[in-house]
Nucleic acid binder design. Sequence first.
DNA 1: GCGTGATTGAACTCATGGGTTCAACGTAGT
DNA 2: ACTACGTTGAACCCATGAGTTCAATCACGC
Lengths: 209, 209
Amino acid sequence: MATSTRGRIDKRQAILGGAFAVFARLGYAQACVQDIADEAGVAKPTVYNHMTDKATLFRHAVEAASQAALDARIGALAPLADPGDDLAGVLEDVAHALLRLHTDERSCALKRLLYSEITRFPDILGVVTGSGPHHLTQALADRLARLALSGRLRAADPDLAAEQFLALLLGPLEARSRLGTRPISDTELHDMARATVCTFMRAWGQKTP
Amino acid sequence: MATSTRGRIDKRQAILGGAFAVFARLGYAQACVQDIADEAGVAKPTVYNHMTDKATLFRHAVEAASQAALDARIGALAPLADPGDDLAGVLEDVAHALLRLHTDERSCALKRLLYSEITRFPDILGVVTGSGPHHLTQALADRLARLALSGRLRAADPDLAAEQFLALLLGPLEARSRLGTRPISDTELHDMARATVCTFMRAWGQKTP
DNA sequence: GCGTGATTGAACTCATGGGTTCAACGTAGT
DNA sequence: ACTACGTTGAACCCATGAGTTCAATCACGC
């Protein structure tokens, strides 16, 4: 029984993974269920045996993918919990890690899917934990609030600081990556992280006494 | 002949307008040519009489819409050509105007279309004049360079300043408008413009001597 | 080995929609 | 009135793909 249940779970995971891969590659409308079944190494009726609809299949695939992306992004904030003397350096490392997470293939595809299907699936942002970047902003705001308390940043409004940090960091991505279709070299990502932290610290760093 | 040519032009404009409206409402795949013909008040064969394909129809419709959007956005920068004493105030007005242009229905729909069809039409960013925000950044950088020359801003790197100004201003839009599906009140837009200019001036304003 | 339940492939139904054809019509220029 | 041309509506062809059915098969527990 354990293995049989396991078998079912494996199929389900394979289906969700294959579905996201195909949806990411072709978009919702162009992706056909047969392609997804092939990608998952599974027969078409098996797909319908786990998911009632192409639509619910899409929902679950996107939900799983965006949950994974969000976890990775929040994980990248960890170094901020205990920055050493070099706050700017740590910020830069975190910024660079976030940039890499936001520019990888799956993230770009996920963003494209969200934008393109948000009208067909208006509830999908609710399925995704807290509208995507939202929870990330919260988590970053928490870290910045700690830093403000210990006098490393201006104390005013950590929520705004977090929102602006992410905006400075991720805003330029759209144009530079041509909506996620052009890869960005790691050195360019490094420069972007540096420029972001530099400007952020000018605006939000504690005045050097 | 003048009127007959005019008649053709009118049909063409009606078709492009109707096409953008329907594509914006339904997305590329879901929009069917019959809907577009109806929206334009025209018969289906007439559509194919002007456009060879659904694909070229899409290209031309998106091109026209994004050209109009870009013109409006660049036009909104005009007050920066001759700011009075109150540079921050003028920046705030321009920022607010840009926010309104970026949050209106057509702009949001256009952005969704670009994101969703960029894989099917990889060349569409070339058709759109200079990848959308790119030319806007250039135009803003020009204005900021003038301001830097006259000592109102830090002189270093107006291109970076423009990129960061737009990132600070437009980056938060994505989460706040839920990818363009939620309207944002004008007072909220005002607050966003104010916060952007405040932070921007802290980072890029001339040190008050 | 036997039975239960999931899986498989193939074929099928049915709806949608791109693109075309065609005969009838309106209209402007001569 | 005649011609030329764009327009119109309706019907048509054809490809695609969602979702289903079914008999055959496989994997596992007993």
